[in-house]
Simulated assay, not measured.
Amino acid sequence: MTLSQLSSINCDPLDIEGYFNACAAFRLSGVAQPFWRDWPLADPHLFLTPESLHHWHREFYDHDVKWCLAAVGEQELDFRFSVLQPLTTFRRFHCGISKLKQVTGRAQRDMQCYIVALIADAAPHGIVIAIRALMDFRYLSQATTINQEHCQKILGALVEFHKHKQDIIACGTRRGAKSKQVLDNWHIPKLELMQSVVPSIRQVGSLLQWSADTTEHAHITLIKDPADSTNNINYDAQICRFLDRQEKC
């Protein structure tokens, strides 16, 4: 919280509940001086880095894809995905993407390879530019080696998106997840997190090294695959026994 934000909150300091309610109106936590403020290297914005799998790729599927489906039409975009030429190592979406369930990070990355080309002549021009700018941001941010020139290109991609993002609202393609009501705001945490990518790169280097892909895949090899060999009763003991026997073998 900044001093200007704190000064704008009119509330009795002894009324704790009222104070936090007043802070909530500004989307603030109400914490001005955290307990770790004097600890070296303990600021979360330094050691909690953006993470590509859950932040960038999930933002693409949760928001960018929904904007494209609304702009082009579910039936039309599904058709365009279904007629794509099959390519080795890339998933083929033969039934489209609008009805997919439990989409993996790999599938999200495969969609990203096609999305700009598939909406280019069907979606409004401003939306195509905004989607392409976010795609530029993702690809640039995943580089294994990033210098100052790359950082400027990443920032430039974000600036281009913000210049054209109002076209997404103007066309009515930004909608609620459940109500499908047209929204006129940009309260998207994953989108806001993109602002911290370049500062984080300057602090810790390439963010690709902090990807959660490895730990997410461990959930398959250490939980899901062993669970398939159980009788669906008392999972923990049977999974541990399976892993113990596998290690001994």
Results as ranks from 00 to 15, higher is better:
residue 221 T to L: 14
residue 179 S to T: 15
residue 127 I to H: 05
residue 95 C to K: 10
residue 66 K to W: 00
residue 229 S to H: 14
residue 89 T to F: 10
residue 248 K to S: 04
residue 90 F to D: 15
residue 201 I to W: 00
residue 183 L to V: 04
residue 114 Y to S: 07
residue 247 E to A: 13
residue 116 V to Q: 07
residue 189 P to H: 06
residue 136 D to C: 12
residue 64 D to V: 15
residue 116 V to N: 12
residue 226 P to L: 12
residue 139 Y to N: 14
residue 79 F to D: 10
residue 90 F to Q: 13
residue 79 F to S: 15
residue 153 K to R: 12
residue 61 Y to A: 13
residue 74 E to R: 13
residue 113 C to M: 08
residue 65 V to H: 02
residue 29 S to E: 03
residue 143 A to P: 00
residue 247 E to K: 11
residue 174 R to K: 12
residue 35 F to S: 13
residue 38 D to A: 11
residue 102 Q to H: 10
residue 220 I to Y: 07
residue 7 S to L: 11
residue 137 F to S: 05
residue 230 T to A: 03
residue 45 H to T: 12
residue 124 P to R: 04
residue 187 H to N: 13
residue 199 P to V: 00
residue 15 D to K: 15
residue 6 L to E: 09
residue 184 D to G: 13
residue 89 T to W: 06
residue 55 H to K: 06
residue 138 R to L: 09
residue 54 H to E: 05
residue 205 G to S: 07
residue 124 P to T: 05
residue 14 L to H: 06
residue 20 F to L: 15
residue 213 D to F: 12
residue 218 A to R: 13
residue 66 K to N: 01
residue 200 S to E: 06
residue 63 H to K: 13
residue 70 A to M: 06
residue 240 C to G: 01
residue 185 N to Y: 11
residue 249 C to W: 08
residue 20 F to W: 02
residue 26 F to G: 11
residue 15 D to T: 13
residue 89 T to R: 08
residue 107 A to H: 05
residue 169 I to F: 02
residue 171 C to Y: 08
residue 208 L to K: 09
residue 82 S to C: 07
residue 226 P to K: 12
residue 101 K to E: 13
residue 223 I to C: 14
residue 149 E to L: 09
residue 8 S to T: 03
residue 9 I to Q: 05
residue 145 T to A: 11
residue 76 E to T: 10
residue 224 K to M: 13
residue 83 V to M: 15
residue 135 M to C: 10
residue 17 E to N: 09
residue 146 I to Y: 04
residue 101 K to A: 06
residue 221 T to N: 14
residue 67 W to N: 07
residue 73 G to L: 02
residue 80 R to E: 01
residue 130 A to T: 08
residue 5 Q to G: 08
residue 188 I to N: 03
residue 87 L to W: 00
residue 72 V to K: 01
